[in-house]
Amino acid sequence: MAITTPTKLVVSKADEFNFTQMAAGPLQVSLANSNHLYGHFCPNLLSFSPMGGLLAASTTYVVPVVPSVDGLSYDFIYTVLAGATDPLTIQVYKNTGANPASGWTSIYGPTATASMTVGHWFVHRHSTVIAANVTMLKFVVVARAGYDMLSHVAVQPTATAVAPPLLKASGFLPFDDSLISSPRAPINTEMVNRAKSNALNVLRDRKQCIASFVQPYVAAPFTTGGYAVSTPSGYTTTPWSLMGKATGFLPGKQYGNITVYCLSSVTGGATADQVVMDLTCQPLSSTGIDSTGLLKTDLSGNVVPSLTLVVWGTGVSNPEVPIEIRVRATAGHTTYIHSLIAFWTPTGAV
């Protein structure tokens, strides 16, 4: 008589579907599996290796996010290569607007980590709820200047059991077994459909980071270093600079949507369509990916999402998505990318 969350998925055998009474049948198993999915589908919301070399006394990163609409708790995992034993102090802020200049609220810390061991990897974790309306996270790391390297930050939903309440904003409807296990209960179409719709809703709600670029967030970055793109004056056609290249995988072949969120600043000049994410897929490539168009975002100093690109694999199992990101600066100006995250949402054939 409860909402049970199995700890792992159970695969029913084909013969269990034949000539079996419905007392403890495969329908109940598949509905419980969907509960499991809710609690244990934890794709990375963020996964980035920040640039900028060794940590300064205080380093700030501002990163766009698209969290689950269910207001889940997320695990934050920081991996540090320690150069000194001094503990770090970490604080995380959230923002619900697009402008990083204001609107920050602390959601974690400032908390001091444990002491580190020099020359070893150190991992710090915490679990914090990210509300559905959060658009940016700010990480402030205080360290002993010039010794430590923040190698990687990962943020992913916390694995949990499904607990009431109950009806989730993502459309997930938890399965309570009290009806199906009562004597001669009706086995109805809603139950059969629910397993599938639950799985789809969970998959679509939890965006996954598939490409990232993050550098320290400074308000006036252009004189203090960091990776920037400049174009000398006099250019009539401003060239693109290849920022980076990555390869994504679509296991099991799916449709999906990719949206890029970019936070960047310019010294001046044109700000529209200055960041391009190209899946180098036109015409159809041998890796079996097809897509339409490029993703472009603007540089406005605020978080700007691109249009959403639909990507699908065409008949190749485990197709790859080669991704290139190019940036340009208007002639005579410099562009600084604070952070750029590409999110993937599975969609498609139902």
Partner: peptide, 26 residues
Amino acid sequence: TLTLPAGAVATGWQNMFAHAGDGTFW
């Protein structure tokens, strides 16, 4: 949501549809 009642209180026609433990497969 409305669905059929449990087999014990369902009409004969309603019992034609799948209920848990009624010895049929659906």
